[in-house]
Design a protein around this nucleic acid. Sequence first.
DNA 1: CATATAGTTAGCTCCATGGCTAACCAATTA
DNA 2: TAATTGGTTAGCCATGGAGCTAACTATATG
Lengths: 127, 127
Amino acid sequence: MANQLSRLDQIFAALADPTRRAIVMRLCAGEASVGELADPFDMALPSFMKHIHVLEASGLVESEKSGRVRTCRLSPDALVGAEDWFQQQRAIWEARLDRFEAYVMKLKKERAAAKRPSRTTKKKGSE
Amino acid sequence: MANQLSRLDQIFAALADPTRRAIVMRLCAGEASVGELADPFDMALPSFMKHIHVLEASGLVESEKSGRVRTCRLSPDALVGAEDWFQQQRAIWEARLDRFEAYVMKLKKERAAAKRPSRTTKKKGSE
DNA sequence: CATATAGTTAGCTCCATGGCTAACCAATTA
DNA sequence: TAATTGGTTAGCCATGGAGCTAACTATATG
């Protein structure tokens, strides 16, 4: 019970749907009612509401009802959280690239050394 | 036939699964064979291979078989593409925040003006 | 009060996803 | 050549996600 999806799971799953990405994009430009949000989409309201719920469950969107109209707004923390994930991966990736570059440089030196065995007697395994 | 998922759909869907995120994180640190990748997971190989396929279909990962071992590596373009999406949203969001701030400033001025109605006769019903 | 508006709830399909087992290549290694 | 290893294919099952309609609630509005 209570499947305890990780927050990132929910955020990425929410963003995997084009309708929901469109909603997020729309909300980036400012808050809106459910009706306003739903208007551009050729979809029954209950179906559309499900998307809203998914977005709320993921923490990307929050909403509040006053009278009979529910107003939705972006809660940017979740978006930033997901963006962070990418930046972390990129950091690791780039660190690796640096190491790889260093490795290639080392290879090049060793190749060069191998190509002229005349002078370089042993080059002292300069690891 | 050929459901024509958008690239972003596939990337986010791929990243919505913790197993697949773990694979991506692992591959950020360098390429690996299917077996090496699968090892930490308590999962039958065929199930695991499905995850690899999803990652390949999304463009996040590419692989190549030589002999009987398939080596997988990250293809960072897709990752960067998804990261870009966040940055675009954030740009719009921040632009809006700026506008909102300007709006609040304007409100403040008007409030201040309203508080001293001595001079401001009608302020010209500025919508 | 009557009606229209804005969401909501309930409940149904259909298909994609994530997992499994069993059986099957195809390279290595003994 | 026989056995092992590393992946792959095929096919099954349970769950969940995305869509629908119909019927309902609650707030405005006439």
